[in-house]
C-alpha cells in the first residue's frame, strides 16, 4: 500500500509563505513546526517573532505567538517564561535583530540562564530592509551600505555572537548549523530538537544559530546561494556544537 511520507507539518497553517524563492526562513519554519510536533509541545509553545523578514511568522505557525520589538526577543521571552514556566518559549530572530540592536538583551538573557530557546537565523544581511550590512556580513561581501564589499579595517570584522554567548555562565546549549543542503537540514532539525529538550528539562538557555540563504540580497540564484553557504560562509562561521553542558541530563 502506498503511504504519504512527507507533507506539511501540523503546526504550520495552510498559508503561503511570503518569503522569496529559495529563502532559508521557509525551511527553518518547517523544521521548527516538525520538531514541535515530534516533541508534542506545539500546544504549549509560545513563539516570539522579530522585526525582520520573519516579522509575520505568526501568520504561519499554528501556535501562540507574541511579537517583540526589534531585537528584544530574549527580553520578551524572559517575561513570558517567568510568568508561564510550564510553556515552551522560543524566539525567532535574524542576525540584525539579535546581533546588532538586540545584543544587550540577548547577552543578559543568556547570562541569567533564562530557560528559553533562541532560533538565530544568520543570513549575513538585513534582509527585510533591503540588504544593508549586518553585524555578520562577511569580509568582502557586498551590501547596499558596503558597496565594493565589507572592509574589516573600516567596518569591523563579522561578529561571532554565538561564541560570545557561550562564555556566559547561564548558557547551556549552543550549536551552529545551516539549511543549505539535505545533510545540513537534517543536522539543523537535530539541533532544534536538542535545544527544546534542553528547555523541557529546565537546563537553561539554548540557542541554535542557523546559516540561512538570502538569495535576493546576496543577488544569487537559490542554488548558488546554497553553495555559497558551504564555500564562503562556513569559513567564517564554522558549523559545530559551540557549547553543550546538557551532559547526561537529556537523551539525544
Amino acid at each position: 500500500m502506498e503511504k504519504k511520507v512527507f507533507q506539511r507539518p501540523k503546526y504550520l497553517k495552510d498559508a503561503v509563505f511570503h518569503y522569496c524563492p529559495g529563502c532559508g526562513h521557509s525551511i527553518i519554519h518547517r523544521l521548527l513546526a516538525e520538531v514541535l510536533e515530534e516533541l508534542d509541545i506545539g500546544d504549549k509553545a509560545i513563539g516570539v517573532p522579530p522585526a525582520g523578514c520573519a516579522v509575520l511568522a505568526y501568520n504561519y505557525f499554528d501556535v501562540d505567538m507574541g511579537e517583540a520589538a526589534h531585537g528584544r526577543g530574549a527580553a520578551v521571552a524572559t517575561g513570558i517564561k517567568r510568568i508561564l514556566p510550564d510553556r515552551i518559549v522560543f524566539t525567532y530572530q535574524g542576525d540584525g535583530d539579535i546581533a546588532a540592536i538586540g545584543t544587550a538583551e540577548t547577552i543578559h538573557a543568556a547570562n541569567r540562564g533564562e530557560n528559553v530557546t533562541v532560533i538565530f537565523v544568520n543570513n549575513g544581511t538585513y534582509g527585510m530592509t533591503g540588504g544593508q550590512m549586518a553585524p555578520t556580513t562577511l569580509p568582502g561581501q557586498n551590501s547596499t551600505t558596503t558597496p565594493g564589499g565589507r572592509d574589516p579595517d573600516r567596518d569591523g570584522p563579522p561578529i561571532d555572537l554565538s561564541q560570545m554567548l557561550a562564555i556566559t555562565k547561564g548558557s547551556t546549549y549552543i550549536e551552529r548549523t545551516a539549511v543549505n543542503s539535505y545533510k545540513n537540514i537534517k543536522r539543523t532539525k537535530k539541533a532544534l530538537t536538542k535545544a527544546f529538550k534542553t528547555q523541557m528539562a529546565g537546563l537553561g538557555f539554548s540557542l541554535v544559530e542557523i546559516l540561512s540563504p538570502c538569495p535576493t540580497n546576496w543577488k544569487m540564484s537559490s542554488v548558488d546561494a546554497a553553495k555559497w553557504v558551504d564555500e564562503t560562509m562556513t569559513k567564517i562561521f564554522p558549523l559545530k556544537v559551540i557549547k553543550d553542558e546538557t551532559g547526561k541530563r537529556i537523551d539525544n
Binding site: K4, R8, F17, P21, G22, G24, S26, R30, I185
Partner: peptide, 20 residues
Amino acid sequence: TGCAICATICPDIAIEVYRG
C-alpha cells in the same frame, strides 16, 4: 525511490512524497 530529499530542501512545502 521516495527518498524525500527534494521535499526536505523545498522551502515552500510544494512537494509531497509517497512510498510503497
